[in-house]
Design a binder for these strands. Structure first.
Lengths: 233, 233
DNA sequence: TCAAAAGTGTTCACCGTACACCCATGT
DNA sequence: ACATGGGTGTACGGTGAACACTTTTGA
């Protein structure tokens, strides 16, 4: 094992990784890359790689993701956690800072040959501790759907309520009634009607109104659900 | 500036830091250490230091905190965030992974000469980006008080409800009525009565019942405040 | 007997969910 | 007409906050 560096100067390789999630065909999927070389040859791993000498972790993961997906397709990116177990990489000491990235459902990014989308609930054999990192990303997304407007990063610019409820169902893992979702998100000011609507399909039915998210950046819309500061009336 | 390393082998120094919080005299305080040498000589910084070659970040921060406070005094420790701005350290490239540590109010740890507690709301001149890291720690604590049992890490083993409400007030920055706090935490199963009580002081008053937290590890007690999965009745 | 502090009961507003019902469209 | 899917109205349970009131103590 080649580890660290000389006297009193512990140096460690550091990489940035990303759990890039997108809802595809009604299922939450994660972008994975198939390793062609050892270690973990043939297993799947998260996109990312070594941190450059003069870039921040955020800049690094954006740069490296650009080789997999168009970075402009990323509607949201946030830091998840840093993994540092000395044994997490079999060959050399490597720290990894993981990010959570979200791609809206209407985009179908061009990805390289060795890269593809996999259902996040049913992962293929994963390299290193990447399976655990994906789990962290899913949990983060689920939690934030409840008290922020992250939905904007999963949905296309305009959507019907039943489409949106489908995205929520895929991300949360259980049904969310479109009728109530509409009221909750409207009350919180997350979404608004565009005024347009979508003609009904062959089987008839009332045309669905189109909505959009009011903001395209993360906002906490349900802060202080409990123990909130006294209201100034 | 001495930065990174040779060809295609970006190496960066990595340190673990901790925002150690404790409620002292009704005020939320953070443990800081006064720098005796440049850079940032005379300014205050968070405890921590270089990551050893064979330790995880969690192990590292525990080891380094042991030089400042007895690690056994830490009731809770969790990872906060990793800072990587290339300019955050004036001399050499340094990444820092910050942790949040909590010390219960009844403990008065012996700290070294150059180390002391400072009100988290009114920080002295801080080195590097440490002031921002303290702010992250405070925000994390405030948020988690609302949906977890972190209170256990702020309070002594046994406490009256008015004492506990004081800890909450110090951490949150606003008043929390003891009478309602009692009901909320009881309903959530976070606290329970010990059966004992504390005699009233000179000025009279009904003796206060003593409570304890039921768990001494972090638990999420108010998950899915919204968009919760359908209840199975 | 009175003040002080703790604890209980009650009320209120709000929120999320469930569900019945109405509306608009295609066949 | 009628099926289909979208949208509205409504009722219910739960929860947190506010506040009045009762209980228990010391002086």
């Amino acid at each position: 094992m080649t580890r660290g560096a000389g006297e009193g100067e512990p140096l460690a390789g550091h990489e940035a990784l990303a759990v890039v999630l997108q809802i595809r065909a009604g299922e939450l999927c994660v972008l994975l890359w198939r390793r062609a070389l050892p270690p973990c040859e043939g297993e799947w791993s998260l996109p990312g790689g070594r941190l450059g000498p003069d870039e921040s972790l955020g800049a690094s993961i954006r740069r490296q993701l650009a080789q997999k997906v168009d970075v402009r397709d990323l509607a949201h990116l946030e830091q998840l956690e840093t993994r540092s177990d000395p044994g997490r990489h079999p060959d050399r000491r490597t720290l990894a800072t993981a990010y959570l990235g979200l791609v809206p459902a209407h985009i179908d990014p061009v990805v390289p040959e060795d890269t593809g989308w996999h259902p996040a609930a049913d992962l293929p054999p994963m390299a290193f501790d990447h399976a655990a990192i994906v789990r962290s990303g899913r949990l983060r997304l689920r939690a934030k759907l409840g008290y922020t407007n992250v939905g904007f990063a999963l949905a296309p610019p305009e959507f019907t309520m039943s489409e949106l409820s489908g995205y929520y169902r895929a991300a949360l893992g259980y049904d969310v009634a479109a009728t109530n979702l509409r009221r909750v998100l409207l009350r919180r000011g997350q979404i608004e009607e565009t005024g347009r609507s979508v003609p009904s399909g062959r089987s008839g039915g009332r045309p669905a109104a189109l909505f959009r998210f009011r903001a395209r950046e993360l906002e906490i819309t349900d802060a202080f659900a409990v123990l909130r500061p006294p209201e100034r009336t």
